[in-house]
Design a protein around this nucleic acid. Sequence first.
DNA 1: TTGTTATTGATATTCACTTTCATCACAGCC
DNA 2: GGCTGTGATGAAAGTGAATATCAATAACAA
Lengths: 143, 143
Amino acid sequence: MKRAKQKIFQDYIARQGLKSTRQRDIILDAFLSSDRHLSIEELYLKLRAKHPNIGYATVYRTLKLFAESGIAREIHFGDGQTRYEHVSEGEHHDHLVCTGCGTIIEFENESIEKLQDEVAVAHGFLIKHHKLELYGLCAKCRP
Amino acid sequence: MKRAKQKIFQDYIARQGLKSTRQRDIILDAFLSSDRHLSIEELYLKLRAKHPNIGYATVYRTLKLFAESGIAREIHFGDGQTRYEHVSEGEHHDHLVCTGCGTIIEFENESIEKLQDEVAVAHGFLIKHHKLELYGLCAKCRP
DNA sequence: TTGTTATTGATATTCACTTTCATCACAGCC
DNA sequence: GGCTGTGATGAAAGTGAATATCAATAACAA
Ligand SMILES: [Mn+2]
Ligand SMILES: [Mn+2]
Ligand SMILES: [Zn+2]
Ligand SMILES: [Zn+2]
């Protein structure tokens, strides 16, 4: 899992004529062993504990690279911060977001995906990606 | 339609002990006779043609009021700008967004809504609202 | 008309990125 | 190993949309 993603990223780096650096290794390791929905700030702060000399801009740029290489995806939950989540080859999921405690639950629903495709076809659309987020209170937070 | 929303907004204003002002009337009129998915900036520029002395902050604050009163809804399509769309009593829809030309198509799909509810129930969630956006190329933009 | 309170609009500030640029560090080639 | 040419880094400055500030102004009830 982790190894596979490291490999994907290294390959991407090589293919693009980019360089392998100490910082990128550190950030990749921290990202892969972190929560699945991390903001840039959160990852930056987490890193700073062990590596106080890594810059915010580097974290920001490296997360973008992760997304380009296919091991991460940018997500926006409307709280004003960009988050990055792990992406596994051929896997897709959507989100339940608790507005009480911030918990995020991932789910997959093939029937919904199929219906989305039908909607797209009916309107002549060629879908590239989509976003489905259900906001509310989780089991712990509901009254 | 337009009258109904004006009424809703005036009632809201009264109920909250707020004041009816020239600017709010002008902005409401411009909003109700505008595109259905307008950014603050777009509405501000549209207004400035006839009312060069209306400030950006007033447009921004008034759109928030529209949302609070229930006649508008804030939407985010990931382009970094907040948009506001018209909301009709008891109506709900989701969006197809063309990444080529920016066209936005609204759609309703009861089956998807039902499946979303089932997902929520399965996870013990109490859904407050949701977001479903399908991004891709519209019939005109697809290759 | 007057007094009170909300509103306005110019401006300043905030926030989350995003860019800049001088310095640094990979990595291929002697 | 030492050179050398790029790409990478990080401190700091810049950006753009949103939000807050505040003195002047406009509603509106008495
Ligand atoms: Mn829906
Ligand atoms: Mn809409
Ligand atoms: Zn919760
Ligand atoms: Zn299009």
